[in-house]
Simulated assay, not measured.
Amino acid sequence: MHQVQTHLLKRERQAFIMKQINLHNRVLSADLGLMLNVSEDTIRRDLNELAELGELVKVHGGALSKSYHYDYASNTTYALPEKTIIAQKAVTLIEEGMYVMVGGGTTVRELVRLLPQDLKATFFTVSLTTALQLCDHPSVEVIFLGGKLIKNSQISVGGEVISRVNDINADLCILGTNAIDVTEGITDSDLEAVQVKKAMMKASKRTAIVTISEKLGSMQRLRVCDLSDIDFLITELIPSDPVFSNYDQNGLMIL
């Protein structure tokens, strides 16, 4: 977590906040205060203004991306061309008859949109928005792993969900990530979400992380797993891009 230039104008500060929201889906007021070198009161005022403008969803201790919601307009998705390329690559991993665990987020949304119409597979998800979108597909089976629902992010979490996940033997797990780094691995800012992601990975034979390359080298406070715990890293870049020089280790395949 790096401190950025201080004494930014309000519009520059709010643009920085929206950049963090677009990249990481969730931001904490305390972290933003440290990065921008301003008080949490200032951050709260900025978040309130941005929420009133409909740019984000204000929650206790921070803010969430609006993209969690089912009625979110795809044409306003951050880095949509890049996420479409990622989704096209990820679709190639899904085979007929598979049991697939999927998370939430705008990249997963593009993946679901690109699923072949004749695909027959079973999808398990803790994301209410992903489940609803999958319900529009004509031939896949959809199993929503429900439990305690976090209203703003529309993700189910908690012991009941983890218990259900533990009973599944999936072929593939496809997850987005809030941050990824060579040394820190996959990290997140929400403890309950981290516990569910860990369970989903453990219940799957292989795991694919889908992320735009802008997140490479970024870190958040809570660790999901090491890079060695995932099988595929899928970005919009070609696998031979120099940015991956330290990533293709421990059996990790770059797509």
Rank of each mutant, 00 (worst) to 15 (best):
N37M: 06
Q133F: 02
T42A: 07
R109T: 15
F16A: 05
Y247D: 01
A170E: 02
L115R: 15
D190R: 08
E12W: 00
D248C: 08
K120V: 15
V165C: 07
V126W: 04
R13I: 09
I150N: 12
G62S: 02
H69D: 11
N250M: 06
T84K: 13
T42Q: 00
R45G: 09
E214H: 15
L47H: 02
R11C: 14
N48V: 15
R164M: 15
V108G: 09
V140H: 09
M219K: 14
V126P: 14
N152C: 03
L233Q: 05
N48P: 00
V210Q: 03
V112T: 12
L114K: 11
S67V: 02
N75H: 15
Y72I: 08
L227V: 09
R109G: 14
E49W: 00
D226C: 03
M200D: 08
K215M: 06
I94Y: 11
E184T: 03
Y247H: 08
L32I: 11
L233P: 04
M1Q: 03
G97W: 11
V243W: 02
T130K: 13
M200R: 08
S163I: 02
T177G: 00
V4F: 02
D190H: 09
A73G: 07
L36P: 13
E184F: 04
G185H: 01
L227F: 04
L80P: 07
Y70C: 01
T106L: 01
G176M: 02
A79S: 09
G185K: 09
I94M: 11
L175A: 07
G104W: 08
G33Y: 06
T130C: 06
N169Q: 14
L227W: 04
G217W: 08
D41Q: 08
N22L: 10
L252G: 10
V140L: 08
Q133K: 14
E40S: 09
F16K: 10
A199I: 08
D31P: 05
E141M: 14
M219V: 15
K205C: 09
T76F: 13
Q5G: 14
E40M: 13
N246F: 07
Q117K: 14
K83L: 13
A63L: 04
A63R: 06
S39Q: 07
F232S: 11
S240K: 05
I17D: 05
S65C: 02
R206S: 13
